[in-house]
Design a protein around this nucleic acid. Sequence first.
DNA 1: ATTAAATTTTAATGCCAATTAAAATAATGC
DNA 2: GCATTATTTTAATTGGCATTAAAATTTAAT
Lengths: 206, 206
Amino acid sequence: MAQPADDTRFAAQRVRILKAAARCFNEKGYSGTSLKDVARHLGLTDAALYYYVRNKEELVYQCYLRAAELGAEAMARATTEADLGFDQARLYVRHHVEIIVGDRGPVAIMSEIPSLKKDHRNEVLALSRRHSLAFEHLLAAGIDDGSIAPCDVRMTGNAIMGAINWIPKWFHGDAAQGRDIVVAFPDVLTRGLRGAGRGAAGGVDP
Amino acid sequence: MAQPADDTRFAAQRVRILKAAARCFNEKGYSGTSLKDVARHLGLTDAALYYYVRNKEELVYQCYLRAAELGAEAMARATTEADLGFDQARLYVRHHVEIIVGDRGPVAIMSEIPSLKKDHRNEVLALSRRHSLAFEHLLAAGIDDGSIAPCDVRMTGNAIMGAINWIPKWFHGDAAQGRDIVVAFPDVLTRGLRGAGRGAAGGVDP
DNA sequence: ATTAAATTTTAATGCCAATTAAAATAATGC
DNA sequence: GCATTATTTTAATTGGCATTAAAATTTAAT
């Protein structure tokens, strides 16, 4: 009854459950998926899930926490691996998209935060805002260093995040398409950011 | 019991209901919103809704039909009002975004198509695909006429549509923010498309 | 005003899904 | 092999929600 926090078996099954849940939630929404749906994907019974989470609300909560973690990881790697704002933005998109369509996916879309109970909702909302703000700061830094053209960073951030968040709505695991996404999205989502300063490619071929 | 198809009262109430439903669905998802939730927004009882729709599934179906209509309208206006692909793409974003954040909104996000029954699902899926294809053709035409730089039109379309579809997740009716969106999104979402041919602004100022 | 039609409410009904407790099975250490 | 712990299942219990039919109220036309 007491689960060792680091037990391999328990932790592994936990992740399997979170991924199965993420797939279901992305497809049919939070309330639209029953615990039986999630369990079926794992060859389990609905009741078995209660060994890993207190209740259904906590299952979504954990999914959203995991989503926030992975997003933050992509962001952290991006700011570490490049200096110019533009390059960081591009890297962030690349890393996040790779996670979403790769082996660590599916990642739950944080699309039903209002369904969480107050404490969890506030926590997830805070994480979400922190992520958005981090990206906006990244964009602002890019404008300062001249690699990104002046723009409304709030709206630009919302646009880029939206395009990423929407991916699970139309990507359902096709490997070839996954490769297309990883190749195209970083370019598509950042091509409009280019500034005239350092690192600017211009847009006019010589 | 028999509703005159064009009756002002009936039609008006019907639209009010669809908008209230769209708001609820966007916020809490299809299964997450009860008919009582929708009715409460209108000062009605849940049972009253059955005078306007056969059942809950048809309520979503109608919301999605309306969403498809409005999207198609934005697309049609865009292709009518401009010639170059780039200008059409920009106009489409402008029109669609104006509808979403304007008085005709909220518009339901088509995010739970799998919850529809087969016939409705197929119809809505077809409309959705048609819309995506229309946009991809528009992009391809822009590449041909030189106003849009060569790109993966499928992925570019997915990215732009995703950014638009995600708007209702963070926009909740604030008028000032609505203006920001209308001003920024057409630019943000199409700035990366510019080609080197006719109508190209380049990216280098002087 | 009176009547008929249109709209909404009240008051059931039944099902599905979340949750829980106890029992059964599987895994692990000795 | 035995005993203890971890994991899953079976078998209730529960409440909410979609749905329906009949009754009540409102609206509109004459």
